[in-house]
Structure formats: structure tokens, C-alpha cells
């Protein structure tokens, strides 16, 4: 091919050849991408379609509903689902706010301050972070139970658990703060700004992506949590989050009655996260990669 181009094709023709070949490779990659996205989207589409199925409530062997409608969504409001949803929302919002504050303060401190135990502290947290959190579940359950924060009161208990160790997740944002020039701080300090003002007025406006990334991850954890939430709520419906409550509908005696409603619940759980991601996607990517490069 190269040889033939060299020997007889004028430059104009070669240009068209390149165009054609790039078109072929584009088509091929689009076909592959479409295929992959179809495979990737099938479960979501299935759940979405099943949630609109009205002719029956059990699992069926087809995907497209025969009778469409919003019955499943309407029925959700006659169950405990609104309560579960509220629980999840409250937990996730509180966790997001507190965790963000703690993480940002922690990162700022470790990035800008120099104190005696700084390095040992960072190493200690690194090692502590390797300890699988699930192992502490049983002891945490006992502690929360003694504090009266399980069963129906599980929401404050869960918030406490989610934000408790959040200070250790400082890596990404500290990395990002390190990229912001220190001379900015110094300039502000000379002009009379306090450390806090430096954080609020200089650092944070410059690190929007990382703040948004922190908020998002802090929100997502509690939003989709199942294991811990199930353990803490201990079969009390009023203390469940959406994932735990919905799971109850999959038990043998309920699945044929509640399967489509389960799908509707799943869709509603996915909605806020999807919207959040769509709006903040740009920052999210910047945030993930931003902290990785040290300037």
C-alpha cells in the first residue's frame, strides 16, 4: 500500500485514501463502541422497562412490557419506600457535607502546615487505611447498639459511621492542593489574611473540581451502601435505607408480588445520582486526574 502510494498516487489522491481509511477505522471503532455500550446498558434498560410493566408483577421471560403504565411507581408510595428513600437521602447529604469539610480541612493542613508529627501521621493513616473496614463491623454494631443508634434510630448511627474515618481519605485532594503555588498563600498572608481565609478565599476557589469530586464520592458511599446499613437497621423497616428495604422485596415469598415495584424503586434510587453526575461530570474527571499530577 505504502509502496503504491509512493510510486503512482499524486498527493490529492493520497489525501482521499487517508480519508477513506480513517472513515473505515472510525466506523469500526464506532461499531465496537456501540456494541460495548449495548452490552453495558442492557441491565439498566431492562430494569427501566420492567418498572413500567403493568400486566404482571413477577419475573417474566421478555423485556418489552405488554401494558405500559406508572402503576409500580404509584404503588411505591403505599409502601415504606418513601421512608427508606428519605433515610438514604438524609444519611447521604449529612455524610457528604461533613465528610467534605473534614477531608478538605485535613488535606489543607497536611499540604500547607509543617509540624512535627506530620510525616508519621500520614504514614500511620496510610497503614490504618489498609485495614479492611468491614472487619470492624461487628464491634461498631455493638457500640452503636449501646448508644441506641441501631434499628429504628439507625440514621444518626450510619451518619456517624460514614463520617468517622473520613479524614483518612485526604490523598487526592492533598495532591491537588500541593499543585497550587505556595506563593499565593504567602502573598495573602502578607496582606493580613488568616490561615482560614487563605483556605476559603484562595485555595477553595482554585480547586473547584476537587471539592466537587469530594462531595460526590462522599455522597455516593452512603447512597449505595448495603452491608452496613442492613446490619445496623436490623430488620426494622423504619431504619432501613433504600437498598436494604428494596432487597427485602426479593425474598422468596415476596418476589413474585413485588418484582416490578423493586425495579421502579431501583430507577428512583438511580435518578438523583445520574442527574448529579450529568451536571458535575466535567469537574469529576478533572478532580480524579487533577490530584494525580504534582506541579
Amino acid at each position: 500500500m505504502i509502496q503504491s502510494q509512493k510510486s503512482e498516487t499524486p498527493s490529492m489522491k493520497r489525501h482521499m485514501g487517508m480519508k477513506a481509511s480513517s472513515r473505515i477505522s472510525n466506523t469500526a471503532s464506532y461499531v465496537v463502541l456501540v456494541l460495548i455500550s449495548v452490552i453495558w446498558l442492557i441491565p439498566f434498560v431492562c430494569i427501566l422497562l420492567q418498572s413500567f410493566r403493568c400486566e404482571s408483577t413477577h419475573q417474566v421471560g421478555y423485556i418489552i412490557p405488554q401494558k405500559w403504565g406508572l402503576d409500580n411507581y404509584r404503588n411505591l408510595f403505599n409502601t415504606n419506600f418513601p421512608r427508606w428513600y428519605t433515610n438514604t437521602l438524609i444519611t447521604a447529604l449529612f455524610a457528604a457535607v461533613f465528610q467534605t469539610i473534614i477531608v478538605l480541612c485535613m488535606s489543607y493542613t497536611l499540604s500547607r502546615f509543617r509540624f512535627k508529627m506530620r510525616k508519621p501521621l500520614m504514614q500511620f493513616m496510610l497503614i490504618l487505611g489498609m485495614f479492611p473496614g468491614m472487619l470492624s463491623m461487628i464491634i461498631l454494631y455493638q457500640v452503636l447498639k449501646d448508644l441506641g443508634m441501631t434499628q429504628a434510630n439507625s440514621v444518626p448511627g450510619l451518619i456517624l459511621v460514614y463520617i468517622a474515618s473520613s479524614g483518612m481519605g485526604y490523598y487526592v485532594s492533598k495532591g491537588f492542593f500541593d499543585t497550587i503555588s505556595k506563593s499565593l498563600d504567602e502573598a495573602a498572608r502578607i496582606d493580613g489574611a488568616t490561615r482560614f481565609q487563605v483556605l476559603m478565599k484562595i485555595i477553595l476557589p482554585l480547586s473547584k473540581p476537587i471539592v466537587i469530586y469530594t462531595v460526590l464520592t462522599a455522597f455516593m458511599g452512603p447512597w449505595g451502601d448495603f452491608v452496613f446499613a442492613r446490619y445496623i437497621s436490623f430488620n426494622v423497616s423504619a431504619g432501613m435505607n433504600a437498598a436494604v428495604g428494596l432487597y427485602g422485596w426479593l425474598s422468596q415469598d415476596q418476589i413474585s408480588k413485588n418484582y416490578t415495584m423493586f425495579c421502579a424503586g431501583g430507577v428512583l434510587v438511580a435518578v438523583p445520582v445520574t442527574i448529579l453526575f450529568m451536571c458535575l461530570q466535567r469537574y469529576y474527571v478533572e478532580g480524579v486526574t487533577g490530584g494525580a499530577v504534582k506541579g
Binding site: Y141, K145, T150, Q151, Y231, F234, N235, V236, S237, G248, S251, Q252, D253, Q254
Partner: peptide, 21 residues
């Protein structure tokens, strides 16, 4: 009254008899 499937009840009871039904 809480809805707990018969399949799950025993596991929950054994996890924490005190907090169980």
C-alpha cells in the same frame, strides 16, 4: 410488627438475640 422473611429471621436472631423480635 416488622416484615421479615422466614428465611432471614433465624440468621438475624442468632446475630443478636437481644435485639431480635
Amino acid at each position: 410488627i416488622e416484615a421479615v422473611s422466614e428465611a432471614d429471621a433465624a440468621t438475624s436472631m442468632i446475630t443478636d438475640v437481644e435485639a431480635g423480635a
